[in-house]
């Protein structure tokens, strides 16, 4: 572990800073290394190893083969990409609404059964989610929301139970003084108005945080999405489709394409994330302290 060196001597400080920089550069390299590899592999030409995995880092010949394959006419990649974008957008919107609604209720109201409800949800959260996968599949099937209807199905599953994830947001609402509510009530506002007109604008960081977290989840969902959309490739999301490229023997030489696809997913999300990083940090920190 690296410690601070608070000696007053300039030389000492310089030395310790130099060590700190060295460590930071090393850490940065380690953290960036897989991404550098991904980028390099995605530009490897098909003439080398035919798009399969290789055991060296620098491609001998750079080309856009993999990207061309993804953008090619036969490729469904952008269909899957679009599916994921649609799912992520809707889940993000509805989940944010749900979480805000639940958080506001639990933060500002004291009703009978409130404690019981919170404790009940806490207990529910301790059951592993995979347990209910097959049950959810058949529930959704009852409403025609599997296979060809998997996209609305995945949106529904994505947000329907999201009310349980209220902790962070409620914690944030708790820090907004109740006296503001009282003042607004004296001015004649009802609680719906207080929520919409007063509290929401004050909670911009937490709204963005909630929406961002919800938006990012569907991009990684390869387990549940494959369970719901199986056998209907038009409904796949990008994770389900790409996961097959590296894990079944039907796809020979798709490795560089996997890397290229990964880059195409990662870049927009990373940019979005970087732009909203401030709010994310605020949400994470607040949530951690409140627990």
């Amino acid at each position: 572990m690296k410690e601070k060196e608070p000696k007053m001597h300039m030389q000492h400080r310089r030395l310790s800073n130099a060590i700190a920089y060295a460590v930071l550069i090393l850490i940065s390299l380690i953290w960036l290394f897989p991404f550098i590899c991904l980028v390099l592999q995605s530009f490897r030409s098909y003439t080398e190893g035919g798009g399969a995995m290789v055991n060296y880092l620098l491609p001998k010949k750079f080309s856009l083969d993999s990207y061309k394959a993804l953008f090619g006419e036969e490729s469904q990649f952008f269909k899957w990409y679009g599916n994921t974008l649609i799912i992520a957008t809707f889940v993000s919107i509805f989940q944010t609404i749900f979480i805000l609604a639940v958080s506001y209720s639990l933060s500002r109201f004291r009703f009978k059964g409130r404690e019981l409800l919170m404790r009940f949800w806490l207990i529910l959260g301790m059951f592993p989610g995979f347990l209910s996968m097959i049950c959810l599949y058949f529930l959704l099937k009852q409403f025609g929301l599997t296979q060809s209807g998997a996209i609305p199905g995945l949106i529904l599953v994505g947000f329907a139970s999201s009310g349980m994830g209220y902790y962070v947001c409620k914690g944030y609402f708790d820090t907004i003084p109740k006296s503001l509510d009282e003042a607004a009530r004296i001015d004649g506002a009802n609680r719906a108005q207080i929520f919409g007109i007063m509290l929401l604008p004050l909670s911009k960081p937490i709204v963005i945080y909630t929406a961002l977290v919800a938006f990012m989840a569907p991009w990684c969902d390869y387990i549940f999405a494959s369970y719901i959309a199986f056998g209907y490739s038009d409904s796949y999301n990008v994770a389900v489709a790409m996961y097959r490229w590296v894990n079944t023997n039907d796809y020979q030489g798709y490795f560089t394409r996997f890397c290229a696809g990964g880059i195409l997913i990662a870049v927009p999300i990373t940019i979005l994330f970087m732009c909203l990083q401030k709010y994310y940090v605020e949400g994470v920190t607040g949530g951690a302290v409140k627990g």
Partner: peptide, 14 residues
């Protein structure tokens, strides 16, 4: 920012 990138890139890729 460098460190935080790992949160943004989907885990099934990285």
């Amino acid at each position: 920012t460098i460190l935080v990138m790992t949160i943004a890139v989907p885990q099934f890729v990285s």
